Amino acid sequence: MTEYKLVVVGAGGVGKSALTIQLIQNHFVDEYDPTIEDSYRKQVVIDGETCLLDILDTAGQEEYSAMRDQYMRTGEGFLCVFAINNTKSFEDIHHYREQIKRVKDSEDVPMVLVGNKCDLPSRTVDTKQAQDLARSYGIPFIETSAKTRQGVDDAFYTLVREIRKHKEKMSKDGKKKKKKSKTKCVIM
């Protein structure tokens, strides 16, 4: 069974824990209790493949930012979460993405942009803004509501699919490099 290491990042209060708990335990946590770091595991079937999701729910508070490099190193894919009623959390996505790329030393890291709290009427981040940002990053965008469960499975499952595509691409690139290195030079 394939294991996928997913990391949920975003500013404090955007609903990272609520999304994760909704996926794992099928219930909505409405009281806000700032996370330092929590880890969850769940076995699911995605596109006919049974897999184990190892999900790291991270601290959004700035005082825990020193811990970010460590979990970013171990993560295979990242859910970059903002709240649709919090423009600052949307603007912060850029910083999370840049930090992930720096730590992973790669421009090509599996990510999904997630606009959470889409059940709320007080939207300050337009869907088109988020779609445009995701398009500019070359990553999928999904709106979710941890409260109603809308888009929750889709967000995590899409990230797994992005990781699969990335692994497939990397193995193809690896095979191309191996083929090239088999060419021999004969000096007579």
Rank of each mutant, 00 (worst) to 15 (best):
D126T: 07
K101M: 10
E63W: 01
R135Y: 14
V7L: 02
E63I: 04
V29L: 04
L113S: 03
Y96E: 02
K16Y: 15
V45E: 13
R97Y: 11
V7F: 02
P121R: 09
C185L: 03
F156V: 04
K175T: 15
R97G: 08
I36S: 00
S106R: 13
F28M: 02
V29Q: 04
A155T: 07
A59E: 00
G77Q: 02
C118A: 11
D126M: 07
Q129H: 07
G115F: 09
V160G: 04
L113E: 02
C51N: 08
G174I: 03
E162R: 08
K177D: 03
D153E: 07
G75P: 03
E168S: 07
N86R: 11
C51K: 14
D38K: 00
Y137W: 10
E143D: 08
P34C: 01
R68C: 02
N116G: 08
V8E: 03
V112R: 03
I163V: 04
Q25Y: 14
Y4P: 15
G60T: 00
L23K: 12
I36D: 00
D47K: 14
E37D: 07
M72T: 02
T58W: 00
Q150S: 15
Q22M: 07
R164P: 03
K177V: 05
M111H: 01
L133R: 08
T124E: 10
V8S: 04
N116L: 09
E31R: 01
D108S: 07
L120K: 03
Y71M: 03
V8M: 04
L113N: 03
S122I: 06
T58E: 05
E49M: 15
E168I: 14
I24C: 02
P110K: 02
Q129D: 14
D132Y: 05
A134I: 15
V112Q: 06
V186D: 15
Q22Y: 02
K184H: 03
C185F: 08
T127C: 07
F28P: 01
I36P: 00
H27R: 03
E3D: 12
H94I: 15
K184S: 05
V9R: 08
T58M: 00
N116M: 14
K101D: 05
T74N: 12
T74C: 06
S106W: 07
Q61D: 15
V109S: 06
I139A: 14
N86E: 12
T183L: 07
V152N: 07
D30A: 05
Y40Q: 00
D108H: 03
R123W: 06
T35P: 00
V112K: 02
K169F: 15
L6S: 15
F156M: 05
V44Y: 09
I24W: 13
D57H: 01
T35D: 00
T35N: 00
T74W: 08
G10H: 02
L56M: 04
V152L: 06
N116F: 01
Q131W: 09
V81S: 12
L56Y: 03
T2W: 11
K117E: 14
K176L: 15
G10V: 08
G151F: 12
A146F: 00
Y96P: 02
Q43A: 11
I21E: 01
Y71W: 05
R149M: 10
F90T: 11
I46V: 11
L159Y: 03
R164Q: 10
N86L: 04
S17T: 01
E63V: 02
P34L: 00
I84C: 12
R102S: 10
A155S: 12
T35K: 00
G60Q: 00
P110E: 02
V7A: 13
K176A: 15
D33E: 01
P110H: 03
K104P: 15
G13R: 09
K117P: 01
G174Y: 06
D126Y: 07
D154N: 07
L23Y: 08
M170D: 04
K117H: 15
N86P: 08
D132G: 07
D47H: 11
R102Y: 10
R123T: 11
C80G: 06
G60V: 00
T87A: 12
Y157V: 09
P121N: 12
R149L: 08
K101C: 15
C118S: 10
V112H: 01
V14N: 12
E162N: 10
D54G: 13
N86D: 13
S17Q: 02
A83C: 08
K182R: 03
Q61T: 09
V9Q: 02
Y96S: 06
S89R: 05
Y64H: 01
C118P: 15
K165N: 08
V44D: 12
R102Q: 14
A66E: 04
P34R: 00
I187T: 12
K184M: 07
A66C: 15
E162A: 06
S39T: 10
S17H: 00
T2V: 09
R164C: 05
Q61G: 04
K169D: 08
V112D: 02
R41V: 09
C185S: 13
T2C: 09
D38R: 00
T50Q: 15
S181H: 03
L79G: 01
V14A: 13
D57T: 00
L6Y: 04
F90Y: 09
K177M: 09
D173Y: 14
L56N: 10
E63M: 03
E31W: 12
Q22N: 06
M67L: 13
V114G: 01
M170W: 15
K172Q: 06
K117V: 15
E107G: 10
M188I: 04
K176G: 14
Y64D: 01
N116E: 10
